[in-house]
Design a protein around this nucleic acid. Structure first.
Lengths: 199, 199, 199, 199
DNA sequence: CATGAATGAGAGTTCATTCAT
DNA sequence: GATGAATGAACTCTCATTCAT
């Protein structure tokens, strides 16, 4: 018994976006398929027509899409011919702005990363890409130290400190807040650049 | 890591520790009352003799205990008569070491903070304490800027950047890793102190 | 085994055959409307243009067609003027060969006969025809006993024993096996004829 | 919110018996966990306390228990020192009576044997035991032919014919019917013994 | 005729929680 | 205090079926 003369057909991307929102508000476990389907104007059963894999698959798809995007942004910067400080600054800015622009997805990457994703086999690719992303930062920092632009620091610790701080923005950023995403991005870039300044 | 003092009566603290471990491994939602009770040598039903409130209450208790502890450590430092840089360094060191010493609990503070805790009414006190904790850092930084020890930065952004980085340690720290908790703590303190150095 | 006459219009019989195959492989409940429609080159919804009654109706149609056919074969034989032993032999041969020639349908008659068909009202006619089919055998045997060709046996038990054995062929017959359908049919006829031999 | 001061504790065997009944009446797919649990005086969820494996596991357990039992009965007879005709007679009698005594389970062995059991990996053992059971009959018949007690027949076809007929009893036997299980068993044994009589 | 989007009912399962013993 | 049987609510997922296009 169908109904709904359909305002518009539902696309796979509509679902991904709705799911990101719902997951963000209620958490993966707190969100039901009903919540997600309602957010896109369907009933729970109908979701499975558009998205074969079920709840897990939706989460993974959301995360992969999100990561693909930041990854692309940051990678583009690493391939520019800039000196390490400038490269790092722009990378951080791009990264943080990406976080503020897509808080829902960014938050998911943090909060559903561990237990939700550790069981299945699917997201192996996702985790690999995460490491690769971290590698981009490590590379810039290593270069900067070698060329003397940066003072010597433990690359591993520094990179993760930087990543933790940047990701964390998704926890406290509020679109209606005092500072714009860009402003925050600048500030954070500034903090870490200063931290690397040779004395 | 002793599990059970063997045939001894089970204390409330035994449960808290076991729960922290189980929650850390499987996540709050992935952990069943059975898992927790088994980890402490009881059956699920018996847990309710110790924790009236059930699963939620256990999580909140774990988190509150954890936060109380870090809070005490850091607060003690803020009350010492030290100059802001030294105070900040010691605070960060204490904080990060607390994270590495109790990774399970620290990780829970991050991962179960949002959706798990947003529904009930109980943890209002917990959230308040979190803010208070953040306030300790803000205070130090503000002081440092006013006295000219630190270069001027946006206190809000800086504090959260610092907190994000410190909390994030619970995600990547491995006891058997290359660096000790103390070493990591030193490095992170170093990074943020440098970031505040007036030019 | 042709599946689809390629781009030709789909006939009601195509569906019946495909359905028989699919039901046989996966069982009635294990087979979805998609499976059936795919086997005939349609989408699920389109099946309803051909079979108003849905899945149930398809099964019933398959079974009725199958039963009609065996029924006709066996009935033709009963109407010949042969002595009971010869009549029985030919009936069994026809029946068993019909089973080996249409294993899928024959198996359905066994496996979906009970629970699947007991609920609805439709197949009343089908069940009546089954009884009638059994009656054909009973008649031959009764005649044989009365004329002294067969030793006296309990007609009811004997008939059902015979039917059980013949139907059961659909369970173990393999087209690529050691014995042809005809050979098996001969053997089984032989067994039951011998069983009826007066001592 | 438990209720039920419990007339008696529910045993694993209670469940198996209830399940056999329910499966028999409604078929495996037609039976819900609610039906089964209700038949034993529980709610659906409670079944999982007593039977970890779910619906599949229940069916398999029912079947295995059933097969174990017939197997034991028949095997005991094959080990007696009797001449082949007597051995076969008693085996058939035991088998058929076992069928009439446990119609529900016997019917399940037929009707849920194929599609229901073909998917999982568990019942491999069950299927193996089925073959072994068939082997018992084959052995007796082979012996009888070799010793000249039986006329030569195709052992494979004969055995399956015999098994089909015996199993089929579960389809038409009615406890309240004209003939007792024992009487039916005698008749069927009689039929097949006669069929093997050397001319 | 055929499609495919959509539905809605229902099934199996899991689990926090309770309470008599 | 501890147990374990029992509950019941929820949730994910499947599928026959319908209907606008």
């Amino acid at each position: 018994m169908p109904r709904k003369p359909a305002d518009q057909t539902v696309s796979r991307d509509d679902i991904l976006q709705a799911a990101a929102r719902v997951f963000h508000h209620q958490g993966y476990h707190g969100a039901t398929m009903q919540d997600i389907s309602a957010a896109v104007g369907l009933t729970a059963g109908s979701l499975y027509h558009h998205f074969k894999g079920g709840k897990d698959a939706i989460l993974v798809a959301v995360l992969e899409a999100g990561l693909d995007q930041v990854m692309a942004d940051v990678q583009a910067i690493t391939e520019m011919s800039l000196d390490p400080p400038e490269k790092l600054r722009r990378a951080i800015q791009a990264h943080v702005q990406s976080v503020t622009d897509h808080v829902a997805v960014a938050a998911l990457m943090i909060f559903e990363m561990r237990t939700t994703l550790s069981l299945p086999e699917v997201p192996q690719r996702y985790l690999a890409q995460r490491d690769q992303f971290e590698g981009l930062y490590r590379q810039i920092i290593r270069e900067g130290i070698e060329t003397g632009c940066f003072r010597p620091v433990d690359v591993g610790v520094f990179t993760r400190t930087l990543l933790g701080a940047s990701n964390w923005v998704s926890v406290w950023y509020r679109p209606e807040g005092r500072l714009s995403g860009a402003a925050i991005a600048d500030q954070i870039a500034d903090i870490f650049l200063n931290a690397l300044l040779p004395r």
